[in-house]
Simulated assay, not measured.
Amino acid sequence: MARYKAAVVIPAKNAMQVLPQVLDKVLAQRTAWPFEVIVIDSGSRDGTKEFLRAESRIRLIEIAPESFGHGRTRNQGVAAADAEFVAFLTHDAEPVDEHWLAKLVEAAERDERIAGVFGRHIAYPSASPFTRQDLDQHFRGFLQHPLVVHKALDAEKYQRDEGWRQFLHFYSDNNSLLRKAVWEKIPYPDVEFAEDQLWARAVIEAGYHKAYAPDAVVYHSHDYSFTEQLRRAFDESRNFTKYFGYRLSPNPRQAIAAMGKFTWQAFRQRLDPAYGPVTFTDRLSRAAQRIALVSGHCLGANHSKLPQGLADRLSLDNRLFKS
């Protein structure tokens, strides 16, 4: 019998700008049962480790930077957790209210076949209007389907429809919770990217269910620079090709056409007034981000054709694992 109903695991590195606020929200969670909080620090140099060592309510696990892996480190956190359920946050994902954790567990307890639950993300108030709208639209789309999904909903569609498979294995460890008994059979893969979606695909194909908890909400958003967006899109596309066989924007001519389309949209699109006024700078940044996104996807889908040195310079993953 596990000691706790749930544990919250947060991988962290050089996170002092955001982690204290995140932990304040986590420790303030209101539940009918006790929970533990585990932070795994991989070599912080900005005071994060010292802050965590002084916090008696946090269980700190320190690992060497070179031992970090997205799947490997989360496996370490789950193994350390003495809990029935293990929730994940990234160190920059802040629960919106005091009921975030209870809502994730509530969703998981609806059916013992539910292996994992993911919650909703909303943008930080400081995010651009486009980022706020993108996140809202993305997570609103999950409400068009059952909150609990599994392969048997339409096994034939799962075999033939790539988009349906992508939908079924969408999962985000920025805001998620898994059932430890399932993890003991199907742990996270030790990969450099998409450990969460690879795990979700594995449990879906094993016959388990996945749930969406729209009321378990975190603030989590980024307004990337052109270079950041390009590199992240490159890794996303390269690894989706590697692990899932999906090629994002592989045709250079189509990619150029898409860049033109997205640039036009950036300067012409009308946003809901609820997202606030849209400045020329917002539109210029949006155009640059969309160009970087499509460029990165195209380069990533064709990474095998690039000189190895260029591919290494483009990849944030390689920089992470070599640092």
Rank of each mutant, 00 (worst) to 15 (best):
A83G: 05
F85G: 04
V86E: 05
L89V: 00
T90W: 14
H91R: 00
E94T: 14
E94N: 09
E94Q: 13
D97W: 06
D97L: 01
E98K: 02
H99G: 00
L101W: 01
K103N: 13
L104Y: 03
L104M: 14
V105W: 03
E109T: 07
I114M: 09
A115Q: 05
F118E: 02
G119P: 07
G119E: 03
G119S: 08
G119C: 04
R120T: 09
H121T: 00
Y124H: 11
S126E: 15
S126H: 07
S128Y: 08
P129Q: 06
F130T: 01
T131N: 11
R132C: 06
Q133Y: 14
D134A: 14
L135I: 08
D136G: 12
D136Q: 12
Q137N: 10
Q137E: 14
H138N: 02
R140S: 10
G141E: 13
F142Y: 15
H145Y: 11
K151P: 03
K151N: 02
L153T: 01
E156D: 12
K157D: 00
Q159D: 14
D161W: 05
E162G: 08
W164H: 15
R165F: 06
Q166C: 04
L168C: 10
Y171L: 14
S172N: 15
S172H: 10
D173E: 15
N175W: 12
S176F: 10
K180N: 06
A181L: 11
A181H: 10
V182Y: 15
E184T: 08
K185D: 14
K185V: 08
I186W: 14
I186K: 08
D196K: 00
L198K: 03
W199V: 06
A202M: 11
A202D: 14
V203P: 07
I204H: 02
I204C: 02
A206P: 04
